[in-house]
Design a protein around this nucleic acid. Structure first.
Lengths: 247, 247
DNA sequence: CGCGCTGTTGAAACTTGTCAAAGTTTGTGG
DNA sequence: CCACAAACTTTGACAAGTTTCAACAGCGCG
Protein backbone atom coordinates (compact mmCIF):
# COMPACT_ATOMS: atom_id res chain seq x y z
CA UNK A 1 0.00 0.00 0.00
CA UNK A 2 1.91 3.00 -1.27
CA UNK A 3 2.05 6.00 1.03
CA UNK A 4 2.21 8.81 -1.46
CA UNK A 5 3.30 12.26 -0.41
CA UNK A 6 0.80 14.39 -2.31
CA UNK A 7 -2.70 13.13 -1.68
CA UNK A 8 -5.29 14.64 -3.96
CA UNK A 9 -7.31 17.23 -1.98
CA UNK A 10 -10.71 15.78 -2.73
CA UNK A 11 -12.55 15.36 0.52
CA UNK A 12 -11.55 18.63 2.16
CA UNK A 13 -15.05 20.08 2.18
CA UNK A 14 -16.38 17.52 4.58
CA UNK A 15 -14.51 18.69 7.62
CA UNK A 16 -14.59 22.40 6.84
CA UNK A 17 -16.89 23.45 9.62
CA UNK A 18 -16.26 25.67 12.58
CA UNK A 19 -18.91 23.79 14.48
CA UNK A 20 -16.77 20.71 14.69
CA UNK A 21 -13.35 22.24 14.46
CA UNK A 22 -11.04 21.50 17.31
CA UNK A 23 -9.61 24.99 17.27
CA UNK A 24 -12.55 26.65 18.98
CA UNK A 25 -10.40 27.80 21.79
CA UNK A 26 -7.73 29.39 19.67
CA UNK A 27 -9.62 30.68 16.70
CA UNK A 28 -12.57 32.99 16.47
CA UNK A 29 -15.60 31.13 17.80
CA UNK A 30 -15.27 31.66 21.51
CA UNK A 31 -18.21 31.86 23.85
CA UNK A 32 -20.73 31.69 21.02
CA UNK A 33 -23.88 29.62 21.07
CA UNK A 34 -23.94 26.49 18.95
CA UNK A 35 -26.45 28.22 16.76
CA UNK A 36 -24.15 31.15 16.23
CA UNK A 37 -21.18 28.97 15.51
CA UNK A 38 -23.21 27.32 12.81
CA UNK A 39 -23.63 30.67 11.14
CA UNK A 40 -19.89 30.91 11.15
CA UNK A 41 -19.70 27.78 9.07
CA UNK A 42 -21.13 29.70 6.16
CA UNK A 43 -18.55 32.35 6.80
CA UNK A 44 -15.53 30.19 6.31
CA UNK A 45 -15.89 29.86 2.60
CA UNK A 46 -13.10 27.48 1.92
CA UNK A 47 -9.91 25.90 2.96
CA UNK A 48 -6.72 26.25 1.13
CA UNK A 49 -3.51 24.27 1.19
CA UNK A 50 -0.23 26.11 1.04
CA UNK A 51 2.88 24.10 0.42
CA UNK A 52 6.11 24.79 2.19
CA UNK A 53 7.81 27.83 0.75
CA UNK A 54 4.69 29.11 -0.98
CA UNK A 55 3.11 32.47 -0.31
CA UNK A 56 -0.36 32.67 1.19
CA UNK A 57 -0.35 36.29 0.12
CA UNK A 58 2.15 38.95 -0.79
CA UNK A 59 2.60 42.57 0.17
CA UNK A 60 0.58 44.58 -2.31
CA UNK A 61 -2.01 41.88 -2.98
CA UNK A 62 -5.58 43.06 -2.77
CA UNK A 63 -7.07 42.25 0.61
CA UNK A 64 -10.39 40.57 0.94
CA UNK A 65 -9.98 37.79 3.44
CA UNK A 66 -8.24 36.95 6.61
CA UNK A 67 -6.99 33.45 7.27
CA UNK A 68 -6.97 31.08 10.18
CA UNK A 69 -4.19 28.54 10.31
CA UNK A 70 -5.72 25.07 10.55
CA UNK A 71 -2.45 23.25 10.44
CA UNK A 72 1.11 24.09 9.66
CA UNK A 73 3.35 27.02 10.30
CA UNK A 74 3.79 30.44 8.69
CA UNK A 75 5.99 33.46 8.85
CA UNK A 76 5.07 36.99 7.91
CA UNK A 77 7.68 39.46 6.77
CA UNK A 78 8.21 42.93 5.40
CA UNK A 79 10.79 43.64 2.74
CA UNK A 80 12.63 46.91 2.31
CA UNK A 81 13.55 48.13 -1.15
CA UNK A 82 17.20 47.43 -0.50
CA UNK A 83 16.47 43.81 0.27
CA UNK A 84 16.44 43.93 4.03
CA UNK A 85 13.88 41.60 5.55
CA UNK A 86 12.08 41.91 8.84
CA UNK A 87 10.15 38.87 9.97
CA UNK A 88 7.18 40.29 11.83
CA UNK A 89 5.81 37.09 13.23
CA UNK A 90 5.45 33.32 13.17
CA UNK A 91 1.94 31.90 13.11
CA UNK A 92 0.88 28.47 14.17
CA UNK A 93 -2.33 26.45 14.34
CA UNK A 94 -5.33 28.50 15.37
CA UNK A 95 -3.72 31.87 14.78
CA UNK A 96 -4.97 34.49 12.37
CA UNK A 97 -3.20 35.94 9.36
CA UNK A 98 -3.89 39.00 7.29
CA UNK A 99 -5.15 41.55 9.81
CA UNK A 100 -2.65 44.06 8.46
CA UNK A 101 -4.52 44.16 5.17
CA UNK A 102 -7.68 45.72 6.56
CA UNK A 103 -6.16 49.15 6.88
CA UNK A 104 -6.04 49.92 3.19
CA UNK A 105 -7.57 46.99 1.37
CA UNK A 106 -4.13 45.72 0.60
CA UNK A 107 -1.77 43.36 2.32
CA UNK A 108 1.25 45.09 3.75
CA UNK A 109 3.40 42.04 4.37
CA UNK A 110 4.13 38.61 2.95
CA UNK A 111 2.83 35.41 4.49
CA UNK A 112 4.86 32.33 3.67
CA UNK A 113 4.31 28.72 4.75
CA UNK A 114 7.28 27.23 6.60
CA UNK A 115 5.82 23.76 6.22
CA UNK A 116 2.94 22.29 4.26
CA UNK A 117 -0.04 24.02 5.77
CA UNK A 118 -3.73 24.52 5.54
CA UNK A 119 -5.77 27.64 6.24
CA UNK A 120 -9.42 28.58 6.52
CA UNK A 121 -10.30 31.54 4.34
CA UNK A 122 -12.57 34.08 6.01
CA UNK A 123 -13.92 36.71 3.62
CA UNK A 124 -13.60 39.88 5.59
CA UNK A 125 -16.80 41.56 4.47
CA UNK A 126 -18.71 38.48 5.61
CA UNK A 127 -16.98 38.65 8.93
CA UNK A 128 -17.99 42.28 9.30
CA UNK A 129 -21.56 41.49 8.34
CA UNK A 130 -21.80 38.64 10.77
CA UNK A 131 -20.17 40.56 13.57
CA UNK A 132 -22.86 43.21 13.23
CA UNK A 133 -25.32 40.47 14.09
CA UNK A 134 -23.41 38.53 16.68
CA UNK A 135 -22.08 40.67 19.47
CA UNK A 136 -19.88 37.93 20.87
CA UNK A 137 -18.18 37.48 17.55
CA UNK A 138 -17.70 41.22 17.18
CA UNK A 139 -16.12 41.56 20.56
CA UNK A 140 -13.97 38.51 20.14
CA UNK A 141 -12.67 39.82 16.86
CA UNK A 142 -11.80 43.12 18.45
CA UNK A 143 -9.95 41.27 21.15
CA UNK A 144 -8.00 39.33 18.58
CA UNK A 145 -6.91 42.52 16.83
CA UNK A 146 -6.03 44.13 20.12
CA UNK A 147 -4.04 41.10 21.16
CA UNK A 148 -2.05 41.45 17.99
CA UNK A 149 -1.21 45.02 18.95
CA UNK A 150 -0.15 43.94 22.42
CA UNK A 151 1.97 41.18 20.94
CA UNK A 152 3.67 43.69 18.69
CA UNK A 153 4.44 45.87 21.67
CA UNK A 154 6.12 42.88 23.26
CA UNK A 155 8.29 42.46 20.20
CA UNK A 156 9.15 46.15 20.28
CA UNK A 157 10.21 45.74 23.89
CA UNK A 158 12.32 42.78 22.90
CA UNK A 159 13.97 44.55 19.98
CA UNK A 160 14.38 47.81 21.81
CA UNK A 161 15.69 46.82 25.18
CA UNK A 162 17.01 43.25 25.18
CA UNK A 163 20.36 41.88 24.24
CA UNK A 164 20.91 38.89 22.01
CA UNK A 165 20.64 36.10 24.59
CA UNK A 166 17.64 37.64 26.25
CA UNK A 167 15.91 37.88 22.92
CA UNK A 168 16.49 34.26 22.10
CA UNK A 169 15.42 33.16 25.57
CA UNK A 170 12.22 35.17 25.24
CA UNK A 171 11.64 33.66 21.83
CA UNK A 172 12.07 30.09 23.03
CA UNK A 173 9.87 30.63 26.04
CA UNK A 174 7.19 32.14 23.86
CA UNK A 175 7.28 29.18 21.49
CA UNK A 176 7.21 26.78 24.39
CA UNK A 177 4.18 28.48 25.82
CA UNK A 178 2.33 28.44 22.51
CA UNK A 179 3.10 24.79 21.88
CA UNK A 180 1.89 24.00 25.36
CA UNK A 181 -1.39 25.80 24.71
CA UNK A 182 -1.86 23.46 21.75
CA UNK A 183 -1.27 20.33 23.75
CA UNK A 184 2.30 19.74 22.69
CA UNK A 185 5.27 19.33 24.93
CA UNK A 186 6.42 22.59 26.49
CA UNK A 187 9.96 21.35 26.54
CA UNK A 188 10.61 19.73 23.22
CA UNK A 189 9.86 20.93 19.73
CA UNK A 190 11.08 21.35 16.21
CA UNK A 191 11.79 24.78 14.93
CA UNK A 192 10.21 25.29 11.56
CA UNK A 193 12.29 28.33 10.74
CA UNK A 194 15.95 28.81 9.93
CA UNK A 195 18.49 30.63 12.07
CA UNK A 196 18.32 33.45 9.62
CA UNK A 197 14.57 33.78 10.04
CA UNK A 198 14.87 33.68 13.79
CA UNK A 199 17.56 36.31 13.51
CA UNK A 200 15.44 38.52 11.34
CA UNK A 201 12.58 38.28 13.79
CA UNK A 202 14.86 39.05 16.72
CA UNK A 203 16.85 41.76 15.01
CA UNK A 204 20.05 39.70 15.00
CA UNK A 205 22.32 38.07 12.47
CA UNK A 206 22.10 34.33 12.02
CA UNK A 207 25.58 33.87 13.39
CA UNK A 208 24.59 35.62 16.58
CA UNK A 209 21.55 33.39 16.90
CA UNK A 210 23.67 30.33 16.36
CA UNK A 211 26.17 31.42 18.98
CA UNK A 212 23.41 32.10 21.48
CA UNK A 213 22.04 28.60 20.90
CA UNK A 214 25.47 27.13 21.49
CA UNK A 215 25.89 29.18 24.63
CA UNK A 216 22.53 28.05 26.02
CA UNK A 217 23.58 24.50 25.37
CA UNK A 218 26.96 24.91 27.06
CA UNK A 219 25.22 26.34 30.08
CA UNK A 220 22.76 23.49 30.17
CA UNK A 221 19.64 25.50 29.53
CA UNK A 222 18.74 23.59 26.40
CA UNK A 223 19.78 20.70 24.22
CA UNK A 224 19.77 21.73 20.61
CA UNK A 225 20.60 19.91 17.45
CA UNK A 226 19.80 21.82 14.33
CA UNK A 227 16.07 22.46 14.42
CA UNK A 228 15.33 20.15 17.30
CA UNK A 229 15.20 21.92 20.65
CA UNK A 230 14.74 20.51 24.10
CA UNK A 231 14.43 22.94 26.98
CA UNK A 232 16.16 21.57 30.03
CA UNK A 233 15.84 24.51 32.35
CA UNK A 234 12.90 26.82 31.83
CA UNK A 235 13.64 28.72 35.01
CA UNK A 236 17.18 29.29 33.82
CA UNK A 237 15.97 30.83 30.59
CA UNK A 238 13.54 33.02 32.44
CA UNK A 239 16.26 34.24 34.72
CA UNK A 240 18.40 35.07 31.72
CA UNK A 241 15.76 37.50 30.61
CA UNK A 242 15.91 39.74 33.63
CA UNK A 243 19.51 40.07 34.63
CA UNK A 244 21.32 42.03 31.98
CA UNK A 245 20.63 45.61 31.18
CA UNK A 246 21.30 46.97 27.81
CA UNK A 247 20.50 49.85 25.56
CA UNK B 1 -7.97 89.11 36.37
CA UNK B 2 -5.90 86.26 37.74
CA UNK B 3 -4.94 83.63 35.24
CA UNK B 4 -5.07 80.55 37.39
CA UNK B 5 -3.49 77.31 36.20
CA UNK B 6 -6.20 74.85 37.16
CA UNK B 7 -9.41 76.07 35.63
CA UNK B 8 -12.49 74.23 36.79
CA UNK B 9 -13.68 72.06 33.89
CA UNK B 10 -17.17 73.47 33.71
CA UNK B 11 -17.96 74.41 30.17
CA UNK B 12 -16.28 71.54 28.43
CA UNK B 13 -19.54 69.95 27.37
CA UNK B 14 -20.42 72.70 24.95
CA UNK B 15 -17.88 71.93 22.30
CA UNK B 16 -17.77 68.20 22.78
CA UNK B 17 -19.39 67.19 19.54
CA UNK B 18 -18.00 65.10 16.74
CA UNK B 19 -20.37 66.84 14.36
CA UNK B 20 -18.47 70.07 14.59
CA UNK B 21 -15.03 68.78 15.48
CA UNK B 22 -12.27 69.68 13.10
CA UNK B 23 -10.64 66.29 13.45
CA UNK B 24 -13.07 64.45 11.21
CA UNK B 25 -10.34 63.48 8.87
CA UNK B 26 -8.03 62.05 11.45
CA UNK B 27 -10.36 60.61 14.03
CA UNK B 28 -13.13 58.08 13.67
CA UNK B 29 -15.98 59.72 11.76
CA UNK B 30 -14.90 59.26 8.19
CA UNK B 31 -17.32 58.91 5.35
CA UNK B 32 -20.35 58.88 7.62
CA UNK B 33 -23.55 60.72 6.92
CA UNK B 34 -24.25 63.83 8.97
CA UNK B 35 -27.01 61.92 10.64
CA UNK B 36 -24.66 59.16 11.63
CA UNK B 37 -22.05 61.53 12.90
CA UNK B 38 -24.67 63.00 15.14
CA UNK B 39 -25.18 59.61 16.72
CA UNK B 40 -21.49 59.64 17.42
CA UNK B 41 -21.94 62.73 19.49
CA UNK B 42 -23.78 60.69 22.08
CA UNK B 43 -20.93 58.26 21.97
CA UNK B 44 -18.22 60.61 23.03
CA UNK B 45 -19.30 60.88 26.60
CA UNK B 46 -16.86 63.46 27.80
CA UNK B 47 -13.65 65.25 27.40
CA UNK B 48 -10.84 65.09 29.82
CA UNK B 49 -7.84 67.27 30.41
CA UNK B 50 -4.53 65.66 31.18
CA UNK B 51 -1.72 67.85 32.39
CA UNK B 52 1.84 67.41 31.28
CA UNK B 53 3.41 64.47 33.06
CA UNK B 54 0.11 62.97 34.13
CA UNK B 55 -1.08 59.52 33.19
CA UNK B 56 -4.17 59.14 31.04
CA UNK B 57 -4.14 55.50 32.11
CA UNK B 58 -1.70 53.00 33.50
CA UNK B 59 -0.83 49.44 32.66
CA UNK B 60 -3.14 47.28 34.69
CA UNK B 61 -5.99 49.78 34.85
CA UNK B 62 -9.38 48.39 33.96
CA UNK B 63 -10.22 49.11 30.35
CA UNK B 64 -13.53 50.57 29.35
CA UNK B 65 -12.83 53.39 26.99
CA UNK B 66 -10.55 54.38 24.20
CA UNK B 67 -9.43 57.95 23.80
CA UNK B 68 -9.01 60.35 20.92
CA UNK B 69 -6.43 63.07 21.35
CA UNK B 70 -8.11 66.43 20.83
CA UNK B 71 -5.06 68.47 21.55
CA UNK B 72 -1.67 67.86 23.01
CA UNK B 73 0.85 65.09 22.82
CA UNK B 74 1.19 61.69 24.50
CA UNK B 75 3.58 58.82 24.78
CA UNK B 76 2.73 55.22 25.52
CA UNK B 77 5.23 52.92 27.17
CA UNK B 78 5.69 49.48 28.62
CA UNK B 79 7.76 48.92 31.74
CA UNK B 80 9.70 45.77 32.54
CA UNK B 81 10.00 44.59 36.14
CA UNK B 82 13.66 45.53 36.18
CA UNK B 83 12.84 49.10 35.27
CA UNK B 84 13.57 49.02 31.59
CA UNK B 85 11.20 51.18 29.57
CA UNK B 86 10.10 50.79 26.01
CA UNK B 87 8.23 53.71 24.52
CA UNK B 88 5.79 52.10 22.10
CA UNK B 89 4.49 55.24 20.46
CA UNK B 90 3.89 58.97 20.42
CA UNK B 91 0.34 60.15 19.80
CA UNK B 92 -0.73 63.52 18.55
CA UNK B 93 -3.97 65.31 17.73
CA UNK B 94 -6.57 63.09 16.15
CA UNK B 95 -4.87 59.82 17.05
CA UNK B 96 -6.39 57.09 19.18
CA UNK B 97 -5.16 55.76 22.49
CA UNK B 98 -6.03 52.62 24.41
CA UNK B 99 -6.60 50.03 21.69
CA UNK B 100 -4.25 47.68 23.51
CA UNK B 101 -6.70 47.44 26.38
CA UNK B 102 -9.43 45.68 24.42
CA UNK B 103 -7.65 42.36 24.41
CA UNK B 104 -8.19 41.56 28.05
CA UNK B 105 -10.23 44.36 29.52
CA UNK B 106 -7.11 45.84 30.94
CA UNK B 107 -4.62 48.39 29.70
CA UNK B 108 -1.28 46.87 28.89
CA UNK B 109 0.74 50.05 28.69
CA UNK B 110 0.96 53.50 30.21
CA UNK B 111 -0.24 56.63 28.44
CA UNK B 112 1.39 59.83 29.63
CA UNK B 113 0.84 63.39 28.46
CA UNK B 114 4.01 65.09 27.23
CA UNK B 115 2.27 68.45 27.30
CA UNK B 116 -1.03 69.71 28.64
CA UNK B 117 -3.55 67.81 26.59
CA UNK B 118 -7.17 67.07 26.10
CA UNK B 119 -8.83 63.82 25.02
CA UNK B 120 -12.29 62.65 24.05
CA UNK B 121 -13.38 59.62 26.01
CA UNK B 122 -15.10 56.95 23.93
CA UNK B 123 -16.70 54.22 26.03
CA UNK B 124 -15.80 51.09 24.18
CA UNK B 125 -19.03 49.19 24.65
CA UNK B 126 -20.90 52.14 23.15
CA UNK B 127 -18.54 52.11 20.22
CA UNK B 128 -19.20 48.42 19.69
CA UNK B 129 -22.95 48.97 19.92
CA UNK B 130 -22.90 51.80 17.47
CA UNK B 131 -20.63 50.02 15.07
CA UNK B 132 -23.14 47.19 14.88
CA UNK B 133 -25.57 49.76 13.56
CA UNK B 134 -23.35 51.85 11.36
CA UNK B 135 -21.35 49.83 8.91
CA UNK B 136 -19.11 52.72 7.93
CA UNK B 137 -18.14 53.25 11.53
CA UNK B 138 -17.48 49.57 12.02
CA UNK B 139 -15.26 49.35 9.00
CA UNK B 140 -13.43 52.53 9.82
CA UNK B 141 -12.70 51.29 13.30
CA UNK B 142 -11.31 48.06 11.93
CA UNK B 143 -9.11 50.06 9.62
CA UNK B 144 -7.83 52.11 12.51
CA UNK B 145 -6.88 48.99 14.46
CA UNK B 146 -5.28 47.47 11.41
CA UNK B 147 -3.33 50.64 10.75
CA UNK B 148 -1.97 50.40 14.26
CA UNK B 149 -0.73 46.90 13.50
CA UNK B 150 0.91 48.06 10.30
CA UNK B 151 2.51 50.95 12.14
CA UNK B 152 3.91 48.54 14.71
CA UNK B 153 5.39 46.42 11.94
CA UNK B 154 7.13 49.53 10.70
CA UNK B 155 8.63 50.07 14.12
CA UNK B 156 9.74 46.45 14.23
CA UNK B 157 11.45 46.95 10.90
CA UNK B 158 13.13 50.04 12.25
CA UNK B 159 14.29 48.37 15.44
CA UNK B 160 15.25 45.14 13.77
CA UNK B 161 17.15 46.25 10.70
CA UNK B 162 18.17 49.88 10.94
CA UNK B 163 21.19 51.47 12.50
CA UNK B 164 21.10 54.49 14.77
CA UNK B 165 21.14 57.25 12.19
CA UNK B 166 18.63 55.56 9.96
CA UNK B 167 16.30 55.19 12.91
CA UNK B 168 16.48 58.82 13.82
CA UNK B 169 16.04 59.88 10.22
CA UNK B 170 12.97 57.67 9.93
CA UNK B 171 11.65 59.11 13.15
CA UNK B 172 12.06 62.71 12.06
CA UNK B 173 10.54 62.06 8.66
CA UNK B 174 7.59 60.37 10.30
CA UNK B 175 7.03 63.30 12.63
CA UNK B 176 7.35 65.73 9.76
CA UNK B 177 4.78 63.84 7.77
CA UNK B 178 2.33 63.74 10.66
CA UNK B 179 2.72 67.42 11.42
CA UNK B 180 2.15 68.17 7.77
CA UNK B 181 -1.06 66.14 7.77
CA UNK B 182 -2.25 68.42 10.57
CA UNK B 183 -1.48 71.58 8.72
CA UNK B 184 1.76 72.41 10.47
CA UNK B 185 5.07 73.02 8.85
CA UNK B 186 6.73 69.86 7.55
CA UNK B 187 10.13 71.33 8.19
CA UNK B 188 10.00 72.96 11.57
CA UNK B 189 8.67 71.68 14.85
CA UNK B 190 9.21 71.30 18.54
CA UNK B 191 9.88 67.90 19.93
CA UNK B 192 7.73 67.26 22.95
CA UNK B 193 9.82 64.37 24.15
CA UNK B 194 13.28 64.12 25.65
CA UNK B 195 16.29 62.49 24.03
CA UNK B 196 15.82 59.63 26.42
CA UNK B 197 12.24 59.06 25.28
CA UNK B 198 13.26 59.21 21.65
CA UNK B 199 16.01 56.76 22.46
CA UNK B 200 13.64 54.41 24.20
CA UNK B 201 11.31 54.48 21.23
CA UNK B 202 14.16 53.88 18.80
CA UNK B 203 15.97 51.29 20.88
CA UNK B 204 18.95 53.54 21.48
CA UNK B 205 20.60 55.28 24.40
CA UNK B 206 20.05 58.99 24.78
CA UNK B 207 23.70 59.69 24.10
CA UNK B 208 23.44 57.91 20.77
CA UNK B 209 20.39 59.95 19.88
CA UNK B 210 22.17 63.14 20.82
CA UNK B 211 25.18 62.22 18.71
CA UNK B 212 22.99 61.40 15.74
CA UNK B 213 21.33 64.81 16.05
CA UNK B 214 24.73 66.47 16.12
CA UNK B 215 25.84 64.49 13.12
CA UNK B 216 22.76 65.44 11.12
CA UNK B 217 23.44 69.03 11.97
CA UNK B 218 27.10 68.84 10.95
CA UNK B 219 26.06 67.34 7.66
CA UNK B 220 23.51 70.05 7.09
CA UNK B 221 20.45 67.83 7.13
CA UNK B 222 18.84 69.65 10.02
CA UNK B 223 19.25 72.58 12.35
CA UNK B 224 18.61 71.51 15.90
CA UNK B 225 18.68 73.36 19.16
CA UNK B 226 17.40 71.39 22.07
CA UNK B 227 13.81 70.49 21.26
CA UNK B 228 13.52 72.77 18.28
CA UNK B 229 14.14 71.04 14.97
CA UNK B 230 14.26 72.45 11.50
CA UNK B 231 14.68 70.06 8.62
CA UNK B 232 16.88 71.55 5.94
CA UNK B 233 17.21 68.62 3.61
CA UNK B 234 14.38 66.13 3.56
CA UNK B 235 15.84 64.30 0.60
CA UNK B 236 19.12 63.94 2.46
CA UNK B 237 17.39 62.30 5.39
CA UNK B 238 15.52 59.97 3.11
CA UNK B 239 18.70 58.94 1.39
CA UNK B 240 20.26 58.22 4.76
CA UNK B 241 17.62 55.60 5.34
CA UNK B 242 18.51 53.39 2.45
CA UNK B 243 22.24 53.23 2.20
CA UNK B 244 23.61 51.36 5.21
CA UNK B 245 23.05 47.75 5.98
CA UNK B 246 23.10 46.50 9.47
CA UNK B 247 21.91 43.77 11.75
C1' DC C 1 19.79 82.97 41.39
C1' DG C 2 20.88 78.43 41.97
C1' DC C 3 19.63 73.67 41.57
C1' DG C 4 18.13 69.99 38.80
C1' DC C 5 16.93 68.14 34.66
C1' DT C 6 18.27 67.75 29.96
C1' DG C 7 21.53 67.70 26.45
C1' DT C 8 26.38 67.38 24.51
C1' DT C 9 30.83 65.39 23.92
C1' DG C 10 34.95 62.31 24.64
C1' DA C 11 37.32 57.91 25.52
C1' DA C 12 37.17 53.16 26.60
C1' DA C 13 34.68 48.77 26.84
C1' DC C 14 31.60 45.60 25.13
C1' DT C 15 28.29 43.50 22.06
C1' DT C 16 27.15 42.32 17.75
C1' DG C 17 28.18 42.23 12.91
C1' DT C 18 31.28 40.85 9.09
C1' DC C 19 33.99 37.72 6.63
C1' DA C 20 35.66 33.25 5.98
C1' DA C 21 36.00 28.31 6.26
C1' DA C 22 34.36 23.94 7.33
C1' DG C 23 30.76 20.69 8.86
C1' DT C 24 26.00 18.98 8.53
C1' DT C 25 21.60 18.11 6.69
C1' DT C 26 18.24 17.86 3.08
C1' DG C 27 16.55 17.27 -1.37
C1' DT C 28 17.16 15.75 -6.12
C1' DG C 29 18.29 13.04 -9.90
C1' DG C 30 20.58 9.22 -11.59
C1' DC D 1 19.42 3.66 -2.78
C1' DC D 2 23.35 6.37 -3.44
C1' DA D 3 25.81 10.55 -4.82
C1' DC D 4 26.02 15.15 -5.26
C1' DA D 5 24.59 19.84 -4.87
C1' DA D 6 22.40 23.28 -2.39
C1' DA D 7 20.99 25.11 1.76
C1' DC D 8 21.71 25.63 6.47
C1' DT D 9 24.59 25.69 10.72
C1' DT D 10 28.61 26.23 13.47
C1' DT D 11 32.84 28.41 14.82
C1' DG D 12 36.80 31.66 14.74
C1' DA D 13 39.11 36.10 14.13
C1' DC D 14 38.53 40.68 13.41
C1' DA D 15 35.94 45.14 12.62
C1' DA D 16 32.40 48.28 13.50
C1' DG D 17 28.68 50.35 15.99
C1' DT D 18 26.67 51.31 20.25
C1' DT D 19 26.79 51.60 25.10
C1' DT D 20 28.98 52.95 29.29
C1' DC D 21 31.14 56.15 32.19
C1' DA D 22 32.34 60.67 33.06
C1' DA D 23 32.58 65.53 32.78
C1' DC D 24 30.58 69.69 31.55
C1' DA D 25 27.25 73.06 29.49
C1' DG D 26 22.66 75.05 28.98
C1' DC D 27 18.02 75.87 30.04
C1' DG D 28 14.05 76.33 32.97
C1' DC D 29 11.62 76.13 37.17
C1' DG D 30 10.85 77.42 41.73
Amino acid sequence: MPNRKAVAPVLTVVETACSNCNLHELCLPLGMSTEEVEKLDELVSSRRRVKRGEHLYRAGDAFDSIFAVRSGFFKTDVLLEDGREQVTGFQMTGELLGLDGISNEQHSCNAIALEDSEVCTIPFSHLENLSREIQTLQHHFHQVMSREIVRDHGVMMLLGTMRAEERLAAFLLNLSQRFTARGYSPAEFYLRMTREEIGSYLGLKLETVSRAFSRFQEEGHIAVQQKHVRILNIAGLKKLMSQHTRD
